[in-house]
Design a protein around this nucleic acid. Structure first.
Length: 591
RNA sequence: GCGCCCGUAGCUCAAUCGGAUAGAGCAUCCGCCUUCUAAGCGGAUGGUUGCAGGUUCGAGUCCUGCCGGGCGCGCCA
């Protein structure tokens, strides 16, 4: 339960009472009323802006309205003090028991602590990765994979019905190019081509993909087909080789994703959509609404192609929905553009019942956002909406020096390389330590170092320390039930040190943080919050070194120790709950 | 030329639908280990939030115009 939402309800109850009493007019918009922790803890436990946002429409001065609210709020259960501050803030102090109850909630809920119902079971489609099935995943894909997966987990925790989806671009020129490169490797496996021949073909741009990851596939195909396609015309081998190459690449990608701990609910094939006539259907749907027409586009400014020729083409009226220009749906050879496939794809999502969609893309797709949002509006008659999270570049570093990427065709730093080197948990956490639209430095030396400025380690250290306290407690009181459920019954009111109260309030903020991060589609907030929890816990730990009375385990006072263990367990629980969103395993000890 | 993103302390970054005195870490300086992991903790120093206007009770956040950086701009995906 979000304790701040509970008190917001209390505030709104009192606002309603003022309306009933005639102090406030009917029909006030209370959506901007917020109850939140004050930035400065000395102001109290909770603050509300209610008086300031309601004063104007009510024709009152903020402070006057605040005074009226304060009178009423002082009677609310759990509120021990209320006062007006600054321009009209209302600061509330709560009975410590309110916060202690939050800790009890956390202990009883375990990793489910922070689960929320704000999603109301609403279906959300999170599309991410969607890398072309033409080769292994590289580090650039890793960020999108982790951001998408964590965002999905976050939304799931917030009560949305989430589908993780991968769009497979298995139609179009890219996969034909893949088939040609695969055919060359197949001929190589049959001894018809040498490595030098392949290099020469690459240089002449006869083939596009030179990576040696196609070598084993070539060998497999040589076994399957013998020399049947070795000298056959392309028309004969293109389709069968393409099919096998796509399947093989997709299997490789799924493997790479599994190494990162990412799995999808749905893979949607572009080829299947086209084959099922979904593009034609979608075009007909839009045509019926007057959104498809034949027209001539202006040449793009600043980058006029040499061979630009104005010509009439089939266009989608994207400008009707806020895009800059209308977008072509057919290439000059009459085939669909990639965009046409995407129109059908997003219509398909709408047909499957999704009105909330999120796409996680690389920053190089920035120019694509508006037209996709236009399409989503158009194919859903305005019901559905699309949020696009653009992930900026990951800069790979080692001790501050850029990691050199080989220019040789087909070689790059793969996702697998990075996971093998630092482990999936480190990759996942670090990828979530920046908001998606900021570039991210990934320094191999830094992310594996054990120090304060490595957030993964710092958070894990806090969890391990918490576990360590329990190890000692079991030695002190063998056989004692130290389960979270048992600790929830401990005399928590013994937790009266200000430092302890601060940590409890922080933990009580976890449900609120989950909801805020989910609504904003910002999983990185969890990383900062966890670092804050870890810092608070490390601080508490050190307090126990300075002042023996503040140690978690007091051998002479079992009841107090149990109460403090409850707090320690609360910290561990919240960290575990947060790491679960990230798909990171909390560690019980560090070596 | 146009569109999108970014610009916060020396460095890397936070800042809760617009909230109160803009916060952390690193670096620099000063403290804290017979005691639950000092791989840690506490304190100090450090700011015209790129610039100039505007909106309002209140702006890092919203609007306009500049400056600087990144990405993108028909028949690629």
């Amino acid at each position: 339960m979000n304790i701040f939402t509970a008190y917001r309800d209390h505030v709104l109850d009192q606002v309603a009472a003022l309306v009933a009493a005639g102090t406030l007019p009917e029909g006030l918009d209370t959506s901007r009323v917020a109850v939140e922790p004050p930035r400065d803890p000395s102001h109290g436990d909770m603050a509300t802006n209610a008086a300031m946002v309601l004063a104007k429409p009510a024709g009152l001065k903020p402070r006057d309205l605040a005074e009226r609210l304060v009178e009423r709020l002082s009677g609310v259960a759990g509120v021990t003090a209320v006062e007006v501050a600054g321009p009209g803030f209302i600061n509330m102090r709560l009975d410590p028991a309110v916060w202690l109850e939050c800790l009890r909630d956390a202990l009883r809920a375990g990793e489910r602590y922070g689960d929320s119902g704000i999603g109301g079971g609403r279906k959300v489609n999170v599309e991410f990765v969607s890398a072309n099935p033409t080769g292994p995943m590289h580090v650039g894909h890793a960020r999108g994979a982790v951001v998408g997966d964590a965002l999905a987990a976050l939304l799931d925790k917030a009560g949305f019905a989430v589908t993780r989806e991968y769009y497979v671009n298995d139609a179009g020129a890219q996969v034909d190019a893949l088939a040609r490169a695969t055919h060359a490797r197949y001929r190589q496996a049959l001894g018809r081509l040498s490595e030098d021949d392949i290099a020469a073909m690459l240089a002449r741009k006869e083939i596009e993909y030179g990576g040696d990851y196609l070598v084993p596939l070539g060998e497999t195909l040589a076994t399957e087909f013998g020399d049947r396609f070795a000298d056959a015309p392309e028309a004969e081998w293109l389709a069968p080789i393409r099919d096998r190459a796509i399947a093989a690449m997709l299997a490789m990608i799924k493997d790479d994703l599994a190494a990162l701990g990412v799995a999808f609910d749905t893979f949607t094939s572009e080829r299947d959509l086209v084959g099922a006539g979904r593009v034609d259907e979608t075009l007909a749907f839009l045509e019926a609404r007057g959104l498809i027409y034949t027209g001539v586009l202006e040449p793009p400014k600043g980058k006029a192609p040499e061979d630009w020729e104005p010509r009439p083409q089939t266009l989608f009226k994207a400008t009707e929905f806020g895009d800059d220009v209308d977008r072509p749906v057919r290439k000059s050879d009459g085939s669909w553009t990639y965009f046409a496939g995407d129109m059908a794809y997003h219509r398909d999502k709408v047909d499957r019942g999704f009105e909330d969609m999120i796409n996680v893309f690389g920053a190089d797709h920035g120019g694509y956002v508006k037209r996709l949002q236009a399409v989503v509006k158009a194919v859903s008659d305005g019901r559905a909406s699309l949020d696009v999270k653009l992930c900026q570049l990951v800069k790979l570093l080692d001790r501050g020096e850029p990691v050199k990427m080989s220019k040789r065709a087909g070689t790059f730093v793969t996702l697998r390389d990075v996971v093998d080197r630092v482990g999936k948990d480190v990759v996942r956490f670090i990828m979530l330590t920046r908001k998606n639209d900021a570039t991210l430095d990934f320094d191999f030396a830094k992310v594996t170092e054990q120090s304060r400025d490595n957030p993964v380690w710092y958070v894990q250290y806090a969890h391990a320390r918490a576990c360590s306290v329990f190890g000692h407690a079991e030695e002190l009181w063998p056989g004692r039930d130290l389960s979270p459920a048992a600790l929830a019954e401990a005399p928590l009111d013994r937790l009266d040190a200000p430092e302890e109260r601060d940590v409890i309030r922080l933990l009580a903020g976890w449900p609120r943080l989950v909801e805020g991060a989910a609504e904003a589609h910002e999983p990185h907030r969890v990383a900062y919050y966890l670092a804050e929890v870890a810092a608070a816990f490390h601080g508490l730990w050190t307090k126990g070194k300075d002042d023996a009375q503040l140690r978690f385990l007091m051998p002479d006072d079992e009841a107090l120790s149990l109460a403090r263990l409850a707090l320690v367990q609360g910290v561990a629980t919240v960290i575990a709950s947060g790491l679960q969103i990230f798909g990171v395993q909390p560690v019980r000890e560090l070596r």
